[in-house]
Simulated assay, not measured.
Amino acid sequence: MNVASILSTKGHDVITEKSTTLLSDICTTLAEHKIGAIVIADDAGHIEGIISERDIVKAIGTSGPTALEKPVSEVMTKSVVTCTDADSVNAVMAKMSAGRFRHVPVTDDGKVTGVISIGDVVKFKIAQAEMEAEQMRSYISMT
Rank of each mutant, 00 (worst) to 15 (best):
78 K>V: 00
78 K>Q: 08
81 V>R: 07
81 V>Y: 08
81 V>N: 02
81 V>Q: 09
82 T>Q: 02
82 T>A: 00
82 T>W: 04
83 C>L: 02
83 C>Q: 02
84 T>I: 00
84 T>C: 01
84 T>W: 03
84 T>G: 00
85 D>L: 07
86 A>S: 13
86 A>Q: 11
86 A>P: 00
86 A>M: 06
86 A>K: 11
87 D>V: 01
87 D>S: 01
87 D>R: 02
88 S>D: 12
88 S>I: 00
89 V>T: 03
90 N>D: 15
92 V>K: 07
92 V>S: 08
93 M>D: 13
93 M>Q: 12
93 M>I: 05
93 M>V: 02
94 A>T: 14
94 A>W: 07
94 A>L: 09
95 K>Q: 13
95 K>M: 11
95 K>L: 14
96 M>H: 09
96 M>W: 12
96 M>Y: 11
97 S>T: 14
98 A>G: 04
98 A>T: 13
99 G>D: 13
100 R>Y: 13
101 F>L: 02
101 F>T: 08
102 R>M: 06
102 R>P: 06
102 R>A: 08
105 P>I: 09
105 P>Q: 07
106 V>E: 07
106 V>I: 10
106 V>Q: 07
106 V>S: 05
106 V>A: 04
107 T>I: 15
107 T>P: 01
107 T>W: 08
108 D>K: 12
108 D>Y: 06
109 D>M: 06
109 D>E: 14
110 G>L: 04
111 K>E: 10
112 V>R: 05
113 T>W: 05
113 T>I: 15
113 T>H: 07
114 G>K: 05
116 I>C: 03
117 S>A: 05
118 I>K: 03
119 G>E: 08
119 G>F: 10
119 G>W: 13
122 V>Y: 13
122 V>T: 13
122 V>M: 14
123 K>S: 05
124 F>Q: 11
124 F>E: 13
124 F>V: 01
125 K>Q: 13
126 I>Y: 06
127 A>D: 14
127 A>T: 07
128 Q>I: 01
128 Q>T: 11
129 A>Q: 14
